[in-house]
């Protein structure tokens, strides 16, 4: 009996620990006052509405969206064939390659950002936007390879051979029988990549320039100057966006199977 209550208590505390900050931010954003505080001074929706009027947020939101969408798409375009090759062919040093591909997960983002700045942006004069694209693609790639790989492990190669014997080329067999069967994994990888890229801070921290900032960096910068509840409101909205996407993904794809 006590064991049951102990485990419930731990579960409850864990939930509070995980969801607590989220709730505090939602409530802080509902403030009627002028500065970020908890508990808030009165309740109003004005900061939630104000968020949409701040121009720099709008610009950085579009940049972050574009980075998340296109960066992830490019990462998938590279990651799906890579995952396929790693699973299908006897590639020498496959394990080493897998480790290298996973490296950005292991290496702290700050180092990746600094390295990109120091060795790509500064010496070559790569534009910050392009550097951001490279960085986000590279960042999402490990997730793409991993998630797609895991959806491919149960896929037997004789299915493709069957397609070839029915007249397909190797390439069309990939599109006609492999892709439809890993579609769930590819979508899951896209969502995971999208959320990872969108919420990414450390790498983007180094890669910002005049008028070019991702949304999280822009929010940091905004907070340094203006300490009002709009940042809390925006954070809450973004959190709802992420939760919404993951919820839909779970509902329609069984997302948790892949990650």
């Amino acid at each position: 009996m006590t064991e049951k209550w102990t485990s419930r208590l731990i579960l409850g505390l864990t939930l509070i620990f995980l969801i607590g900050p989220f709730l505090i931010i939602i409530i802080a954003g509902l403030s009627a006052g002028q500065s970020l505080a908890f508990p808030p001074d009165g309740i109003s929706l004005k900061w939630y509405l104000k968020v949409f009027e701040i121009e720099s947020f709008r610009d950085s939101f579009i940049l972050s969206m574009a980075l998340a969408i296109f960066g992830t798409l490019i990462a998938l375009a590279l990651g799906v064939p890579a995952a396929y090759a790693l699973n299908r062919y006897e590639i020498p040093y496959a394990e080493t390659i897998k480790t290298i591909v996973a490296a950005p997960i292991i290496v702290p983002g700050i180092i990746v950002g600094l390295a990109l700045l120091r060795y790509l942006v500064l010496p070559i004069g790569l534009t910050v936007t392009l550097a951001l694209f490279f960085a986000h693609t590279a960042l999402v790639l490990p997730y793409a390879v991993r998630v797609v790989s895991s959806s491919m492990t149960n896929l037997r190669s004789d299915m493709e051979e069957a397609a070839v014997l029915l007249g397909c080329t190797r390439l069309s067999a990939f599109f006609k029988v492999v892709l439809p069967n890993i579609k769930g994994g590819v979508l899951a990888a896209f969502i995971l990549g999208f959320v990872t890229s969108f919420n990414q801070v450390p790498v983007s921290l180094f890669l910002s320039g005049p008028g070019v900032r991702t949304l999280p960096i822009d929010m940091l910068a905004y907070m340094e100057i203006t300490y009002d509840p709009s940042v809390a409101a925006l954070s809450a909205l973004l959190a709802f966006l992420s939760v919404g996407i993951v919820f839909l993904a779970e509902k329609f794809l069984g997302f948790s199977r892949y990650v």
């Binding site: 037997r156 004789d158 299915m159 051979e161 069957a162 397609a163 070839v164 014997l165 029915l166 007249g167 397909c168 080329t169 029988v177 439809p180 069967n181």
Partner: peptide, 19 residues
């Protein structure tokens, strides 16, 4: 090449297309 040979092969695992 296999896709031009006009030979049918029934795999031990059937290799049907699940989708």
């Amino acid at each position: 090449p296999a896709n031009k040979r006009e030979i049918g092969l029934m795999f031990q695992s059937y290799a049907l297309f699940p989708h």
